[in-house]
Amino acid sequence: MKITRTFVLSGVALLALSGCSSATPQPEPSPSSSKISYADGLHAKVLSVETANTITVDVDGRTKEVRLLNVVAPTEHNNEFSGSCLVPESTDFLKQKLPEGTEVTLDFDDSRVGSSGYLEAAVYVGDDLINADVVREGFATTTFLSQRDEHYAPVSEAQQEAAREGRGIYSKDVECSLPHAIQLHLDRVHRADDSQNEEERIGLYKSASNFYNTLMSEAKSPDTWVGSIVTLDAVKDQLKELKNALGKNYYDVQGKSEREKQSEANEPIRPGS
């Protein structure tokens, strides 16, 4: 999606001149003493890529670490579903998009610095929004700070595209992805249906039910923001398929199956009970 923007040249504040004679020559402001104006259209040069959502850039001779606005990258220490999936692959992808020396333009949201403490920006190469590119390939997901986030919409749309096309962390073929985990339990349920071993069958049903219950407890309202919760909105149809496959063999959080609850409801009341 091509985004048309108006570039605003960033200014550099001059050093204040005070207490000096007009005849005294004044030194030129150095990069270290001048202040960066964080306005849309700020030009920078890529020095390195740290993760799928963090880069180091040079701005007028100063080194700044920038986090891609509205983008959440997988990390080795993320315990959320799919949160530690494709970490090196996602970083390599961004390195290919932004090799050292690439000229980029930075746009900012009103908040500019997010809760992480990083300088957060929409990173452009020409009219190409890099934030959306990483998410579109399924190498990262989107997040937001408020309803007024300026760049959330295109990044969220990119995530929905990745989910529809089954790319990256939305692929059933990627072992660390959530869709792969759901499919694995779905296959186990089908295998349980064909099993003659009652103990094995019940174990598979309970395992799939516990997985489903845990997943749903992790996301109280996955549909509140389209694409805002890592992969859950994208796999809601797949989760529904798993629940339907379990049918009466679904076990609730109390460990009771639908079949058991139905049996108890149909049990006749005995005299004196």
Rank of each mutant, 00 (worst) to 15 (best):
V174P: 01
V135C: 08
H185K: 04
I130F: 10
F144P: 12
L119C: 00
S177P: 04
A122C: 12
D127Q: 14
Q147M: 14
V123Y: 02
V113Y: 00
H185L: 08
G138F: 06
R112H: 13
L204G: 01
A122S: 12
A132H: 01
R167V: 00
S111L: 11
E157G: 00
A192D: 08
A181T: 01
G138A: 06
R164A: 00
E165D: 04
Q159C: 05
V135G: 06
G117T: 06
A192L: 05
E165N: 13
A153R: 15
E137A: 15
D194K: 15
G166R: 03
R112Q: 13
Q159G: 14
A181L: 00
A140D: 02
H190M: 13
R136K: 14
A158M: 09
D193K: 08
Y152N: 11
T143V: 13
F139A: 06
D194Q: 15
D110N: 12
Y124D: 08
E200K: 14
E150P: 00
D128C: 03
I202D: 07
V155L: 02
R201L: 06
D128H: 12
R112M: 14
Q160C: 08
G138W: 01
S156F: 11
A158D: 07
A132E: 03
K172N: 05
G126A: 08
H190S: 13
A140I: 09
E161V: 12
V125M: 06
G203W: 09
G168F: 04
A192M: 03
Y124F: 13
D128I: 09
T141K: 09
G166N: 12
D194G: 10
A163E: 14
